[in-house]
Design a protein around this nucleic acid. Structure first.
Length: 486
RNA sequence: GCUGCUAUAGUGUAGUCCGGCCAAUCAUGCGGGCCUUUCACGCCCGCGACUGGGGUUCGAAUCCCCAUAGCAGCACCA
């Protein structure tokens, strides 16, 4: 019995082992602060987090803000908030714009070692040379000249676009992407929101510097970085440093939501979206607003794993994870979409006590008073219907006269309703009905819900027979809810 | 064009490194049933895949070659 249980437990999916992890790991999540985090980020963030938790160690948040064109000052805060929401075990945070002197110093060292040079070739020209596996004239300049030019760069003796620092690689590398790639550039505008600078490192340079000096041991990132990994290798070799262990997972296609930060920002600015948490977006805050729990996001990402196959993200699988988390906790309430009012003859006043959760009687009940007239979903009354049961109340006969239904009390017996295969439907007393809007991906449902729903602001509840919803807004006029999933 | 990565059911995933125990795992989805005062949860049954073609081998999802498809890189973005 116990053996069977534990055996089943061991079958729980775990991530594949990482080599060189015996003494713990140091990993990092390194977003560009151009906006809030979205599902794409969540994969890298959750995977790295899971490994740090599995092996123990440090988890560094590194804000990569070395391109002032792609920095949103608000994003620094948003990224931290989103990670906090996800519940990741970040142990320290660094921001690259705080570390420019470190990069400058390393660049100087690299030049001294003959591993980099200052290049004044224009882009197009260099591209041609690169394709032809030919060295550009700057490549063979003496170290002293490179150092002087580098100092002139730092002294702002060059304008934007005039020079760059290149890493010496191997011009005969069959992959043109590897040949003498750039490491620093000059940018006169726009100004960086956090630091006064004009010489900026490019990603492949600052990443190596930080991974090395921060002691990063393992890097898990998308396979769009696989070429960068190979490029970065040259710097490690020039410096005689040891490279981290890398894993590159495949591309993840995500349907149904907008993920591009620039597109999102555009839509927000022109009013198409209400904000970063508009539920049509794929941001963490949008998911949160729709009632997706952070655990569900993490579990879904771990289930996907670090495979290098390109995959398409499945909302169904995310919803299934979320339901596991939300179903045991969500209170049940009635929501009547597109309601019609019906009067039931022959019935005494009744008080219905419906359970807040069918699996947890201790949680208690909510009380609905029946006194003759109720709201039910319009769609339930079709000409083939002869009996319905109002859930937790009683049965109702439906009789038809020239297409007009009338309703009469048909007894309390649940067994009768079952025997008659009557549908058990949600309902609301007219007096207790609170106007409620339910926003779904397919549009808006208008209806009414129980008064108690107003106390569930910010929570996920289940509207019985409709699905799980997040109560987003409550005021004197009613309730607004977002559909999470069935 | 050049360079590289990948290819298991609708979706995700295990197995591939070290060929046989794989007539291929688990989850999700879908269909059916049971349970149940929800179309939720739970339980049971079922559906559904090794991209194609060659080769090696007694034996291939697993190794090799070719083809096809997808993806990524060849930015003074990350």
């Amino acid at each position: 019995m116990f053996a069977a249980l534990s055996e089943k437990h061991e079958h729980k999916k775990v991530l594949p082992d990482l080599e060189k992890s015996e003494k713990g790991v140091v990993m990092r999540f390194a977003p560009n602060p151009s906006g809030p985090l979205h599902i794409g980020h969540a994969r890298a963030a959750a995977l790295n987090d899971a490994y740090v938790k599995q092996y123990g160690g440090r988890y560094i948040l590194r804000i990569e803000d070395t391109d002032p064109k792609r920095v949103d000052p608000d994003a620094y805060e948003m990224v931290v908030e989103d990670l906090k929401w996800l519940g990741l075990g970040i142990t320290e945070t660094v921001t690259q714009s705080d570390r420019l002197p470190l990069y400058y110093d390393l660049c100087k060292q690299l030049i001294e070692r003959g591993g980099a040079y200052v290049c004044t070739c224009d882009n197009e020209h260099f591209k041609e040379l690169k394709q032809a596996k030919t060295a550009c004239p700057c490549r063979d300049q003496p170290v002293e000249k490179n150092l002087a030019m580098w100092q002139k760069m730092l002294d702002h003796g060059y304008k934007e676009g005039e020079v760059s620092v290149r890493i010496k690689t191997d011009l005969n590398n069959p992959d043109p992407a590897m040949r003498d790639y750039p490491a620093f550039r000059i940018l006169d505008s726009p100004p960086h929101p956090k630091v006064k600078a004009h010489v900026y490192p490019l990603m492949n340079f600052s990443v190596v510097a930080d991974d090395h000096f921060l002691g990063v041991t393992h890097v898990i990132r998308g396979k769009d970085h696989i070429a960068n990994t190979r490029r970065q290798r040259y710097i490690y070799d020039h410096m005689g440093w040891q490279v981290p262990v890398y894993r590159h997972y495949g591309r993840m296609g995500i349907e149904g939501v907008v993920l591009s930060t620039s597109q999102m920002r555009l839509g927000i600015n022109d009013g198409t979206y209400s904000g970063w948490d508009d539920i049509r977006l794929g941001t963490m805050r949008a998911l949160a607003r729709r009632g997706i729990s952070p655990e569900a996001v993490k579990n879904a990402m771990l289930a996907i794993g670090i495979g290098d196959t390109d995959i398409s993200f499945s909302w169904d699988n995310l919803y299934a994870e979320n339901k596991k988390i939300v179903d045991p906790t969500a209170n049940r309430y009635f929501f009547v979409p597109d309601p019609i009012e019906i009067t039931i003859s022959g019935a005494q006043k009744h008080t219905a006590h419906a359970m807040l959760h069918p699996g947890d009687a201790a949680r208690g009940t909510r009380t609905l008073e029946f006194d003759g007239t109720v709201l039910i979903p319009n769609s339930e009354i079709t000409p083939d219907v002869t009996m319905i049961r109002l859930k937790d109340l009683f049965n109702v006969n439906v009789t038809w006269d020239h297409g007009t239904p009338s309703f009469t009390f048909a007894g309390d017996s649940l067994a009768d309703a079952r025997a008659a295969k009557a549908r058990i439907i949600q309902w609301l007393p007219v007096q207790q009905a609170v106007p409620c809007k339910l926003l779904t991906p397919d549009g808006e449902m208008t209806g009414a819900c129980e008064p108690q729903v107003k106390t569930a602001l910010g929570k996920v509840v289940q509207f019985e027979r409709v699905g799980f919803v997040k109560i987003d807004f409550v005021d004197a006029d009613g309730v607004k809810a977002y559909f999470t999933h069935k």
